[in-house]
Design a protein around this nucleic acid. Sequence first.
DNA 1: TCGCTTATATTAAGTCTTTATATTAAAGCG
DNA 2: CGCTTTAATATAAAGACTTAATATAAGCGA
Lengths: 410, 410
Amino acid sequence: MSQTRPPAPAGSSQLIRQLNAQRVLSCMWGREPSTATELMHATGLTRATILTLCRELTEQGWLEVSENSRQAGQYTKGRPALRYAFREDACHVIGVDAGLHQVTAAVANLRGVEVGCATRESNPQGSDAPPQPAQERRRTILDTVDAALAQAGLAHADVACLVIAVPAPVDSSGHSPKGLNPFWSLMNPELISLGAEHGWDCAVDNDANLAALAELDLQSSSLHDSFAVILSGERLGAGIVMEGRLLHQPRGGIGELGMLDLVHGVESANGLGWWARHLAREALQKTPELAGPLGEVTAEAVTSEHVFAAAAQGDPLAREIIDQLADRLARICVVLSGLLDLDRILVSGAIAPALTDVAALAKQKLAQYLYAPWLQIEASTLGADAVRRGALRLAVDRIQDRALNSGPGH
Amino acid sequence: MSQTRPPAPAGSSQLIRQLNAQRVLSCMWGREPSTATELMHATGLTRATILTLCRELTEQGWLEVSENSRQAGQYTKGRPALRYAFREDACHVIGVDAGLHQVTAAVANLRGVEVGCATRESNPQGSDAPPQPAQERRRTILDTVDAALAQAGLAHADVACLVIAVPAPVDSSGHSPKGLNPFWSLMNPELISLGAEHGWDCAVDNDANLAALAELDLQSSSLHDSFAVILSGERLGAGIVMEGRLLHQPRGGIGELGMLDLVHGVESANGLGWWARHLAREALQKTPELAGPLGEVTAEAVTSEHVFAAAAQGDPLAREIIDQLADRLARICVVLSGLLDLDRILVSGAIAPALTDVAALAKQKLAQYLYAPWLQIEASTLGADAVRRGALRLAVDRIQDRALNSGPGH
DNA sequence: TCGCTTATATTAAGTCTTTATATTAAAGCG
DNA sequence: CGCTTTAATATAAAGACTTAATATAAGCGA
C-alpha cells in the first residue's frame, strides 16, 4: 500500500501564481491592449509566464485576444505579437446618486465609462411635502436603476455591482445611524439590501466620501497627495483622502462637519448654497428697494443661483455675499488643512461650477489664518456628476478587488 | 557547449520563501519561545518548512534555540520539541525625547524593554537665557545618548537604530520647516544626521506623533481602533492613529493645532498646563488676598502643579479652573472626534497624571457639543514617559521592517 | 517562389520551494 | 529492555518559474 502515492499535494506555491496573476491583471485593468513583451517589461516576468497567465485570465473572462496586432504599428518586421485586451464589458456596474431631491443612476462598463443613465425626482425642491417614506424611496431607486439599464440595453444579469450614495453617514456594513437623526434613516432605508434580489454585490456610502473617490480617480496625477472634498449644497459634508486612500471609519462618521458649529466665522454646517440664499434674503428684507440685478428678485424667491449670476454681472451686494462665502470657506479649509496638512481642498457638488471665484478668493483669505502656501483651494470640475462618478468608481474597484483576490469567481 | 547548463536560474520563487520567513519572524517577534508545532498552527505551514525557516533565521541572528524544551511543560511524553526563541538582544535601539527643557535618552532591547536611561537639562525651565544654539543642542543629545549607553553597558556598535522626538513638525526626511518658526529649527537642528557617524539608522519625528505610537503599543487590545493623543504641556500637539496606523504626511504637519485659534472657547494652541498657570495668575492678581490653598502662592510664582494640588484639596478657585480646562479640552475633542470619528482621545505628556479629573469632566461636557457617547476621553498612564517610549517603539519597528524586508542585512 | 531576417510563441529541461509520507530520533514508563 | 509518544529528518512528488532551444509567422529581396 505504499507504492501508490496520492497525486495532488496542492502546495501553497499557488500563492505565487495568484500574486503574478494579480500583477498582470492590474497592469492591464482599464488600459489599452498589451503585448507579452510590454508586460514583460512592466512586471519583470518571463514571456512564457506572461503568456500562460494571459491565457488563464482570458479563460476567466477578464482578457481577450485583440486582432489588431500589426496595425498597432510599433514594428513591421517579425512575427506579430499576440495582443491581449482588457475586457471592459466583462460585466457592468451601477452607481446611484440618491440625493434628497433627485435620484440619478448610471450604468458603466469596467473602465467606468457610462453606457446608460437615468434620473427621477424624489422630493421636489420647492414642495413642503414630507419626504418619501422608506418603501417609496426604495422603489424610486429601483425604478431609476431599471431605467438606466434599459437605456444601456442591458439585463440584470449583466450587472455585477451596485453602489448607492446617500447624504448621510454610513457605517461599514452599509447602515446609517438610527434614531439620532430621522433624516438619515429616510435617506438610507436599508438600501444595502437592494442589490440582494438580483444577486449583485452591493455597497452604500456617504455622498461626500464618494465624491472624494471621484476626484481621486480624476486627478491621478500625483498619486500620493492628500486632499479633502467638500460637498457643499444645503449642508456640508466632506470626504478625506490621505496619501491616495480614502479615510474610513467603522461608524462612518469621517467628514461629518457638525463640529463647525464651534468655529469662529462659520458657526454651522450649512452649505455655501444655503448661506448664499440666506444672506441674500436677509439683505433683501432689510432693504427691499435695492438697486442692481439682485434687487429684481423678492426676498422670498431668491436662490443661490440668483446670487452667483448677479455677482457675475458685478452686483455689489452679490459680491459682498461672495466675499463672505469665501471667508467661511477659508476658515473651513483652515480647520481641515491645519489639522491634516492637506495638499488641496476641492469644493464639489451641483453648485461647484458657480464657486470658482469663491474658491480663488478663499485661497487668498487663507493666509490670514494659516501659513499653508502649498494648499490649493479649487472648485471641482465634476460638479453635479461627482457623487455618481464616485459611486461608479467604487463599484469598479470592488469588482477589481474581487477579480484579483478570488480568481475564477466570475 | 550546450551540455553544461548554468547552475543558478534564480527565479522569482524565492519570493515565497521571503514571505514565509516574514510570517514566521512576525509570529515570533517579541514573543515567548515557540515550538515548530505552535508555529505550524499559527502560520499554516508544514513542520519541515517551519524548521527550515527557523534554522535560516537562527543563522541570521534573529532567533536562537532555547534549551528549556521540556520544562515549558506543555506535555511530558514523547521527544521534546526544539524551542526557538526571539533574540531580544540581537541588537539594541535608542529613543530620545529631546524636549525644550530636558533631553532623555533610553536604550532598549528589541522587545522595547529599557536597559539604560539618562537625562540632561537643556534649557532650564526658569531661566530666561536664549535657547541652546544648534551645535550645543546636538552635543547635549549625543552626551545623553552616551550616558544611557554607558548605563546599559553597551557600545556604539551594539546599537542599530536611533529615533529622536522633537517638539516641532518634522517632514518625511527628518527636517523641520526653516525660517517659518525659529523655535522649530532650534529644536531640530538637522538631528537626522546624528546617527550617521556611528552608522546607525536614524529617524526624527514629532513628539506628539511618537506619543501616539507609544499608546498604540500599549493599548493593543482592540487593534483597529482610532484615537488621537494630545500632548498638552505648554503648547498643544496631537498625533492621530486611524485604524491602527499613525497618520503621516510628507510635510509632517498632521496634528498641528494652530487652527484651534479659530475654535470658540479654545482660541489658541496653548496647552492645558499653560492655561492652568495663566488662569490662576489672572485670578490671583485680581484678588491677591485669596482664601484656600491656592491663596498661599503669589501670582508670579504660581504653576500648574499648584493648581492641580489645590484642586485635589478642594480649593474652589482651583476647581473653577479645572472646570474651564475641561471645557477647553471638550471643545478640542469635538473638533478632532467630530471630524475623524475617533474612538478615544488620550491626553498625554508630563502633566497627564494630574489630568485624570479634567479628562473625566471633559467627557461629561462633550455631550453639550457633540453626540458621541462612544468616545473615551482619558489621561494617558504613560505620562512623561510617553514620548520616549514612542521613540523606542518606532526604532524597534524600523528594525523589524528591515529584518522582514531585506533578509540577511543584519 | 524561395530563402533570409526578424520578432514572437511554444516547448523542454532544470531549479526552487513546498507538501505528504515514511523513517528515524529522543525521550518517558512499565 | 521494549513500548508508546512526540518530534525531527529524509525522500518523493508536484506546482511554478526561468532558461534555452525550437517552432512559427510574418516581411523582404533575389
